[in-house]
């Protein structure tokens, strides 16, 4: 029986059967799955594949690096960060935008908190830019965007709420987020929207935690727009620490 490994020979953990999760036949025709590997050197402390549509969370300690791999390409990873010691301090889209003077997230962007503090810094990024304007999809907001026939569909807001509940958090704690590997251009007249992605299989982004942070991610289950190419695929999360 063949083990599934990345090019370095490493097999990530997975809450479900990794062979099934990484079986291209389970996804749209032509899907390529690339596990890539960590974007930072150091000891691997955690290495896990998030199945399509699922939430995930972890604490990343100050100085550790989190690599997020877009395994199937153009898979939005909706992402929130909290001060792990006091979750009332959490990621702030406007503090990040005003602090960096730019609406797009790229290498060097400091992810700031609601108190203006540095939660994490983007230290490497393999797409042109990442999104932090487009927010998260949700069961209720889908009815505005696509119609009431979508009422039964699962969304990122539900993933966030389910994962946040593990830490005693709820609706008050869910704020506007980052979207790794999602493409939201703003045109000159302010028109904006989610368009076809600019990522691809195996593309990565890496963050260095500037304090101990709790991260929540929703591997976006959206089926009605191109944020995941209408084909939800897995993400790989790797936490590394320099010796």
């Amino acid at each position: 029986m063949t083990e599934i490994t990345d090019t370095a020979g490493r097999t990530p953990d997975c809450p479900k059967d990794l062979k099934e999760v990484l079986d291209p036949g389970r996804y749209a025709d032509g899907t390529v799955l690339d596990l890539a590997g960590p974007l930072a050197d150091g000891e691997i402390l955690l290495d896990e594949v998030i199945p399509a549509r699922a939430p995930w969370s972890a604490v990343v300690k100050s100085g550790q690096v989190l690599t997020i791999v877009d395994v199937g390409g153009n898979q939005s990873g909706d992402f929130l960060l909290y001060n792990a010691q006091d979750t009332a301090e959490r990621y702030s889209v406007p503090d990040t935008i005003a602090g960096g003077g730019n609406v797009y997230v790229r290498t060097g962007t400091v992810l700031r908190s609601s108190l203006g503090n540095s939660l994490a810094t983007v230290i490497a990024n393999e797409t042109d830019r990442q999104d932090t304007i487009g927010g998260a999809c949700g069961k209720e907001s889908n009815t505005l965007r696509y119609g009431h026939h979508t009422t039964s569909e699962h969304g990122c807001r539900e993933n966030f709420l389910a994962e946040a509940a593990k830490y005693g958090m709820g609706a008050r704690d869910i704020v506007s987020n980052l979207n790794w590997f999602m493409n939201v251009p703003i045109e000159a007249d302010g028109t904006l929207g989610i368009v076809d992605g600019i990522s691809g299989p195996g593309k990565r982004v890496a963050l260095r935690a500037e304090m101990d942070i709790l991260v929540l991610i929703s591997n976006c289950p959206q089926l009605n727009n191109p944020c995941n190419d209408f084909n939800p695929t897995p993400l790989r999360m790797i936490i590394t620490e320099r010796a």
């Binding site: 889209v93 304007i133 487009g134 927010g135 998260a136 907001s141 505005l144 965007r145 506007s176 987020n177 939201v184 703003i186 302010g190 028109t191 904006l192 929207g193 989610i194």
Partner: peptide, 10 residues
């Protein structure tokens, strides 16, 4: 985020 995204206008 929903206010700008859902209205397609920043």
């Amino acid at each position: 985020a929903d206010t700008v995204k859902i209205s397609w206008q920043a």
